[in-house]
């Protein structure tokens, strides 16, 4: 199993390439979906965790902390992934206008794709990190963090903006811009 930063960096790289292929006009709508998903999960996390913990104890009648962490981590992981999949597979909010032609357009598509890649892979990493890398018990990821990984964790989206409130700023501004047309 390779280094964790390579694992999540590869996910970000693939999403950047998707952004390059799709064009930034479409990727911007997906950025909104991703930001909304991050906001919602941050908003409900503190409220939902006690309920999920109670539910876990009620159903499985066990106090196994590792399994409980795995359950919580997977719960947020699945919700996040389903939301992102809906954003990529379905219709999203689009902004009017044409995108720049090559090569400028490709650069901007890469840029927006990289932002989306950072938000998505950073969020996946975050939900592993705060629950103690429970997927490592399944052998899916390497829990040993290199100095680079430790440094990068400081810059995960949810660590940069731990409160849901700042996430409202880009959502509100982008919605205003969409409404204005």
């Amino acid at each position: 199993m390779g280094l964790i930063e390579v694992y999540f960096g590869s996910i970000a790289g693939i999403i950047t390439l998707i952004g390059l292929a799709q064009g930034y006009a479409r990727e911007l709508g997906r950025s909104m979906i991703i930001i909304v998903a991050i906001f919602l999960l941050l908003y409900v996390e503190d409220r939902l965790n006690p309920i999920l913990n109670s539910l876990w104890r009620m159903v499985f009648s066990t106090e196994d902390v590792g399994a409980q962490q795995l359950f919580l981590s997977n719960f947020y992981l699945i919700i996040f992934v389903v939301t992102i999949f809906a954003g990529y597979a379905g219709r999203v909010i689009t902004f009017s206008g044409q995108q720049w032609p090559m090569p400028h357009g490709a650069v901007l598509s890469c840029l927006v794709g990289a932002v989306n890649g950072y938000l998505i892979s950073g969020s996946l990493w975050y939900y592993q990190h705060i629950y103690g890398y429970p997927l490592s018990s399944l052998g899916w990821i390497n829990p040993e963090l290199s100095p680079i990984a430790v440094e990068l964790i400081r810059y995960l989206p949810q660590n940069l903006m731990p409160s849901p409130t700042p996430w409202v700023i880009p959502i509100a501004i982008l919605l205003l811009m969409r409404v204005r047309g």
Binding site: Y24, A25, L28, S31, I35, F95, S96, G97, Q98, Q99, W100, H104, L108, L111, V112, V115, I169, P170, I173, L174, M177
Partner: peptide, 15 residues
């Protein structure tokens, strides 16, 4: 993050 996204959106308007 907002400034970055708004800057990219503004290029759509220009085009």
């Amino acid at each position: 993050l907002t400034v970055l996204l708004v800057a990219v959106i503004s290029t759509l308007r220009r085009g």
